[in-house]
Amino acid sequence: MAQISPASDPRLESLSARQSLPLLADVALWMAAAVVKWDCRHRSRRALTRLTPHQLKDIGITPEMADQEIRKPFWIP
């Protein structure tokens, strides 16, 4: 399943473009990016639960593949 990369998020892009951030800012930026990734995975997997078998077939996923993806915790890619 395609996912949006937090690095392409315009809200985080300007921060990551800077060369010298203090250590605490680097850690905060890493944590923010992780939360954005986790939220994206959670939303994507929750959206899979609402798709019909016909819609899953349209996007090239079997119901078994969707079920396997849905069962993953949000922190697992």
Rank of each mutant, 00 (worst) to 15 (best):
A7F: 08
R41Y: 13
C40D: 12
P77F: 01
T52P: 09
H54M: 08
W38S: 03
P53Y: 02
I59W: 12
S8D: 13
L21H: 14
A47C: 06
L56A: 02
I59H: 11
R50W: 03
A47F: 04
A34D: 06
V35F: 08
A28V: 02
L24D: 12
D9R: 07
A33F: 05
R71N: 02
R18H: 03
A34M: 05
P77V: 03
R18L: 14
L24F: 06
R41N: 14
A17P: 09
E69M: 15
T52V: 01
M65A: 12
L12A: 01
L56E: 00
P73F: 01
I59Y: 10
E64Y: 03
L23G: 09
D58A: 15
L15M: 14
S8H: 08
L12D: 01
M1D: 01
E13R: 15
I4R: 14
L48C: 10
D9F: 09
L29C: 11
L29P: 14
I61Q: 10
A7L: 07
R50P: 02
R18C: 07
D9N: 14
A33N: 10
P53E: 00
P53I: 01
I76R: 01
W75A: 03
W38K: 07
V27W: 10
D39F: 00
E69R: 15
I70V: 09
T49V: 08
G60P: 07
C40M: 09
A2G: 11
S44R: 10
W38G: 03
R45Q: 02
H42R: 07
A47E: 05
P22L: 05
I61E: 07
A32V: 06
L21E: 12
E64G: 08
L29W: 09
E69H: 14
A25P: 09
A25D: 15
A33S: 15
V36Y: 09
P6N: 11
L24H: 09
T49G: 06
T62P: 03
W30A: 14
A17M: 08
M65L: 10
L51H: 04
D9M: 08
Q3M: 13
G60V: 07
W30Y: 10
M31L: 11
M1Y: 04
S8P: 06
Q3D: 07
E69V: 09
Q55D: 13
A32L: 11
M1F: 05
A7N: 04
R45N: 02
T52S: 14
L12F: 08
P6Q: 10
L23F: 13
W38C: 04
R71W: 00
A28Q: 08
